[in-house]
Design a protein around this nucleic acid. Structure first.
Lengths: 121, 121
DNA sequence: TTGAACTATGAAGTATACTGCATACTTGTG
DNA sequence: CACAAGTATGCAGTATACTTCATAGTTCAA
């Protein structure tokens, strides 16, 4: 049960960005039951898990919408198993494509390095 | 020696985007020597190589600026070999980080799939 | 109890990467 | 030689993902 400040500290994501993510539907807190004097939102471990995933996915070029599709079914039972697997399997394919592209880039950069070595020797 | 239309066809990148890339310094054509009636830019194979690299790098989350740093030394001799290697090695590290992140995401998504399977059975 | 720190909300601003529009000139085909 | 298609240029507009600002209310330590 963390407030936004602590969530920010634990994930390294600035508070305004977390608010933006909340508004975008990526994470959501809830008010403490029985407290009506404020509107402070409390977050659980699940929010941290989601945010860690968001950071990884962003780093490899997924859009927030693509990430949201996965994160949305993190704890959901409403949609069918088939529909859930469709989303997840699509992402797994994208991931493998990205890994292949990264390996192709490595190859390309290594060729580039060899060219530099050869013409400077 | 291709005009922008053909460059677009061969890479699948829309002409306005190619113009944007040219303005950003990612690619550059040159005018046919001796022709002064127009300002048509001609591109060589190198432009295609660069654009293929750009597309891969973009797909895995590199920014145009990061990509430009690599592409800039594609055919350049001016900067020192050490400086060139620095840029390239930095990108190689980033690539390995991204691959690690993609593998972590795969693991996460597979766990997510297992959870779905278990709670629906 | 007061003031610093924290929280919420809404609206405006910024950076990146395009995307479209208007204009104008050039080239190739029937 | 008309005219469709291609090229160049500049500027405005859009989408995504934040980031900043202004305002206002809340909590807690001294």
């Amino acid at each position: 049960m963390k407030l936004i400040h602590q969530l920010s500290k634990e994930t390294g994501i600035p508070i305004p960005t977390l608010r933006f993510y909340e508004k975008s539907g990526l994470i959501s807190g809830r008010r403490k039951t029985g407290v009506s004097t404020n509107n402070y939102q409390f977050y659980e471990q699940g929010a941290i898990d989601k945010l860690n995933f968001v950071q990884m996915a962003k780093a490899v070029g997924f859009t927030l919408n693509e990430i949201k599709e996965v994160v949305d079914l993190w704890y959901k039972k409403e949609i069918t198993q088939k529909a859930q697997f469709e989303v997840l399997d699509k992402r797994l394919l994208q991931i493998d494509e990205k890994i292949a592209e990264l390996n192709a880039m490595k190859k390309q950069i290594k060729i580039c390095k060899e060219n530099i070595e050869n013409r400077n020797s």
